[in-house]
Amino acid sequence: MRFLIFGDVIGKPGRKALRYFLAGYRDLVDVVLVNVENSAGGFGITKKVYEELQGMGVDIMTSGNHIWDKKEVYQFIDTSPNLLRPANYPEGVPGRGYGIFEKKGIRFAVINLMGRSLLDSNLENPFLVFDRLYQEVSKETPIVVVDFHAETTSEKWAFGIYVDGRASLVYGTHTHVPTADQIILKKGTAYTSDVGMTGCWYSAIGMKPQQAIDRFTKGIPQKYEVEEKEDLVVNALLVEVEESTGRAKSIERLQQYITREELLGA
């Protein structure tokens, strides 16, 4: 089974780049997963954007700490089984943090978790939540995919080793910067610390850079806005998993720069 994975997609530019990239890849893979927590105006997701992404051929949408930024998400997250929020939010929070899905007769699990280092220490421990969920989903399928939305590479790496041999794939999201550490770990789990963002590359992780510069140089809080006038970059992972065992067979980092002219001509 071939998975095409995208990290944080940033606003309208990210969605345009995603559509452009999927035109050449969608028919070559079985499952497309996208982290959508920044997909609507850079913060959160709306029903309109959710439907747009579905129309592109996105199968599963994961998220992180920005999932609640657009309040309308409360109106449709409970009725959208392919839209996940981190599973280690407390009981009673809307939505779901994992699911069992099926494509071409093959079942697979996707678990969305959020790290606690430099993020929200009030969340449940993601390591222990994985243990609990793995006991459940492993009864249904050996293929277990995890979006680990976290700030620090130390927490991500520790988690990857912790679940090695149980998860088929662990990929990091949240920092928007792709890491060059894609690897198959000793017990068969494919891993990378961060897939990287899809959006305008000449930016401050997808946002207008001057706003970030002003915050760093002047210490004044800023309202961040999505950068929309620059050329684009797509960062993704292509992972193949053995269907009978759930072990990863290969992992490849994909990156494509796209000019605004290319998008207009598409």
Rank of each mutant, 00 (worst) to 15 (best):
L28N: 15
Q211T: 08
N38E: 10
R253I: 15
V34A: 03
E261D: 15
G188I: 00
N65V: 07
Y202G: 03
T46R: 08
T259R: 15
G165V: 07
N38M: 10
Y25C: 10
S63K: 11
E230L: 05
L128W: 04
G44V: 00
V9C: 05
L128A: 13
L264Q: 15
I184K: 00
V226F: 03
F159E: 06
E37M: 07
H149Y: 08
M61I: 09
Q75E: 13
A40G: 05
T141F: 00
N125L: 14
N112Y: 11
E51I: 12
F148T: 05
V239W: 06
G115H: 06
G160Q: 02
I111P: 00
V144Q: 02
N88P: 08
P94I: 05
E155T: 06
V29D: 04
S63L: 12
P90T: 11
F159V: 13
D120T: 13
S154C: 13
D181F: 13
D131C: 11
R215M: 12
T259W: 14
A190V: 08
M1L: 09
G11H: 08
R19C: 11
V146E: 02
G188P: 00
T245G: 06
V226P: 00
G24W: 11
S250D: 13
S39H: 02
N65D: 14
V137Q: 03
I5Y: 00
D69K: 06
G165M: 08
T62L: 11
L238C: 09
Q222K: 01
Q135G: 14
T198M: 08
V233W: 12
T173Y: 03
T189E: 02
L118R: 05
G55S: 02
E155R: 02
G11F: 07
